[in-house]
């Protein structure tokens, strides 16, 4: 297939179909095969990212399924209450899976041109656990949100 065809415009229906197809595919990948022992606490992982800042609970909303049947691909959306103007915006949101052997999931970096501090992706969850989102604001304040997720079949190689 040529690069041109791969990058063709896709309509909503195709996109949804494609997305569910890869989600189904991901479900069959044998991710539970190995378990490495080196574990990092999520507090240490968070400190490595935001330093000594003490996050305040609030402003950060995490949308996650209450029960995730397949830990290999758990959809999530994070949003932060912010006007997203030039001098008051969310600089970054970091997601940590507190019960994963490697708690770092993703960091989103926003700009005032983002318009909305909201992003969606899919994560791996090794087991039932809390997911934490930490938002760094342009004024240096740090906020945190938390959600617990029950995982039926663990992903994340664990």
């Amino acid at each position: 297939m040529t690069e041109r065809i791969q990058l063709k415009v896709i309509d909503r229906r195709d996109f949804v179909l494609g997305a569910s197809a890869v989600a189904a595919l991901a479900a069959f990948l044998p991710l539970g095969a190995g378990r490495a022992e080196a574990k990092v606490s999520w507090q240490d992982a968070m400190k490595a990212v935001i330093g000594d800042a003490k996050p305040t609970m609030g402003k950060v909303a995490l949308e996650l399924p209450e029960i995730a049947e397949n830990g290999n691909t758990v959809p999530f959306t994070v949003s932060v209450d912010s006007p997203m103007t030039g001098n008051d915006y969310v600089k970054a949101v970091h997601i940590f899976a507190t019960g994963n052997p490697a708690p770092d999931v993703v960091s989103f970096f926003f700009t005032p041109a983002s318009g909305k501090a909201k992003a969606t992706s899919r994560m791996r969850l090794a087991k039932t656990q809390d997911v934490v989102a930490v938002a760094e604001m342009s004024n240096g304040k740090v906020y945190m949100g938390k959600r617990s997720v029950k995982v039926t079949i663990g992903g994340c190689g664990g």
């Binding site: 890869v22 960091s107 899919r122």
Partner: peptide, 20 residues
């Protein structure tokens, strides 16, 4: 917009975000 991904992101990474 930028995302720094770790192994905690699922296979076939999907990202949705907003732009003004």
């Amino acid at each position: 917009f930028r995302a720094k991904m770790h192994p905690g992101i699922s296979a076939n990474p999907y990202l949705a975000f907003h732009v003004k």
